[in-house]
């Protein structure tokens, strides 16, 4: 059984004349423990797929299922214990007035955990931050440290599927390396499944097993990373994308 199955997914914004179809008939499946990449240029709808899965994009049709369970329009609390998301911009994804301790503590509280203090400590250690960051506010953290907090928040409910929306595109390359390593380690340690969106082919090549190439809302090709490394594209658009990235 697949961890995540997306079948005939359509996502749109607006109504009537203003309707914009952001994703058109997307179909793919991610196996348990796999790391799957979505690549494409801006506006290709890759992030919108993640938002539709989490329910942040309300207008969608098609079938989404997690471990064979079809997702209803109104997601139950148990859904968020299985699926979590890391956002692109760590400067925008943390509440400016909440300390790290508040962010993680509230998340744990919402998921009904009891030993919140111990868990906050453990989460900070897991993402390589340590205790001295616990009571800091976001403006006292660097971009990489913020993204680590965001990852800790996503890990707090102990999810199985992690949706990564360009988790390193706002970061410097040296910090990107640290965050990507952290994600690799966490996946190995916790047996996580990743669905990762990126515009950077080399990042997807490093992190993923398979990938889907998107163009203006449609998936044009699903390929293995081995094929990506060989620049072995079947679709002309993929070929074009490869050439531009070289």
């Amino acid at each position: 059984m697949s961890m995540l199955e997306v079948d005939g997914l359509n996502v749109w914004f607006g109504k009537h004349q203003q309707r914009v179809d952001a994703v058109k008939n997307a179909t793919f499946a991610v196996a348990r423990g796999e790391s799957f990449g979505l690549v494409g240029e801006s506006g290709s709808g890759k992030s919108t797929i993640l938002r539709a899965i989490t329910g942040l994009a309300p207008d969608w049709s098609g079938t989404l299922s997690i471990e064979g369970q079809t997702i209803s329009k109104r997601r139950p609390k148990s859904f968020y214990k299985q699926v979590q998301m890391v956002f692109q911009d760590p400067y925008a994804s943390l509440h400016p007035r909440h300390s790290v301790d508040q962010v993680l503590g509230e998340t744990l509280h919402l998921h009904g955990f009891q030993d919140i203090d111990n868990r906050v400590v453990k989460l900070l250690d897991d993402v390589g931050l340590g205790q001295k960051f616990r009571f800091r506010y976001p403006h006292q953290l660097s971009g990489g440290q913020r993204q680590r907090v965001a990852i800790a928040r996503a890990l707090a409910p102990e999810p199985e599927l992690l949706l990564l929306d360009e988790p390193t595109s706002a970061l410097d390359v040296s910090v990107q390396a640290e965050i990507l390593n952290l994600l690799t380690d966490l996946r190995a340690a916790r047996g996580l499944t990743y669905l990762m969106v990126s515009h950077d082919l080399s990042v997807v090549g490093h992190m993923c097993d398979r990938l889907a190439v998107m163009k203006s809302g449609e998936i044009v090709e699903i390929m293995s990373v081995a094929a990506l490394r060989k620049m072995d594209a079947r679709h002309p658009y993929t070929q074009q994308l490869f050439e531009a990235s070289l």
Binding site: Q84, M85, F87, H98, L110, R153, A156
Partner: peptide, 22 residues
């Protein structure tokens, strides 16, 4: 519409909590 509100929604927080605490 900011990301940190999306993030807390993904933790299953309700409207009352989001309005009062965030």
């Amino acid at each position: 519409s900011s990301d940190y509100i999306s993030a807390i929604k993904l933790q299953g927080a309700g409207a009352l909590r989001i309005i009062t605490k965030h």
